[in-house]
Design a protein around this nucleic acid. Structure first.
Lengths: 126, 126
DNA sequence: TAGCGCATGTCGGAATTTCCGACAATGGCA
DNA sequence: TGCCATTGTCGGAAATTCCGACATGCGCTA
């Protein structure tokens, strides 16, 4: 893992990037920070701080901003298809989705049973 | 805790919906709140509060959670498709970006004027 | 039925973030 | 230059989040 540095710098970095994208999108549609602030019911300084990465953006705010800027949310988040979870887990989950609630519950119980049998292997969390 | 402020109720409502979706997605992949908390480097109580709509979710957190849960961010924001921006609008914006600030401002005002003329019920996004 | 273990919910105060007005810096233009 | 619009920054109040400790709910089993 390359991100073992400070941990907080990552989030700041991401806020910086997100803020830059938000600014670009805003300028693209020709809106002033003030107008955005009014639309969002935020202090106008918040918009400035957001675009400079000094203030976070909530998911709901991002959704609203994306609409205002007429861009899909993914334009700001950058869609990725990185399995942060073992692929087999995801696959199991998809399979389970086709089951009834009861069957799914049973499947879950069975999974827990299996785990309890071999509680030796630790969960491979990074 | 009075409920006199209606304006905030909207945000709370949205947080409730988002939290429910996050919970559904988490259970779908068979993760415990505790595991999610570790992955996100958050207190596990935060995950609980998020799923119950008592704590907000930052855009960056949502992005991370979406990856963890193997879903597109739009699954949570509920926006799915939707460039929905007619090509002519995009073209107009592109054109506008090449204008000077003043010209763009004027263009903006004119656009607002046009909108006020056919002002029916605001942004009828359906 | 009581009791245990696991997952989740909730509470309280400290820590952090956000709000918001006031003011500064920047840039265009007459 | 002076004026005006836009954006950036600062300080304390207000709101939110962190985080441990404890509570609740549920399945299991002795």
């Amino acid at each position: 893992m390359t991100t073992e540095r400070i941990g907080l710098a990552v989030a700041e970095d991401e806020s910086l990037v997100l803020g830059a994208k938000l600014r670009e999108a805003r300028e693209y549609v020709g809106l002033k920070q003030d107008q955005v602030a009014q639309h969002m019911e935020l202090p106008r300084t918040a918009v400035s701080e957001i675009e400079n990465g000094r203030r976070g953006v909530s998911a709901i705010e991002l959704k609203k901003l994306a609409r205002l800027y007429q861009r899909p949310v993914t334009w700001f988040t950058g869609e990725e298809k990185e399995p942060a979870v073992p692929a087999d887990v995801a696959f199991l989950a998809r399979t389970a989705s086709a089951l009834s609630d009861n069957d799914r519950q049973e499947l879950q119980r069975f999974a827990e049973f299996l785990r309890s049998r071999s509680k030796v292997s630790g969960d491979g969390r990074s």
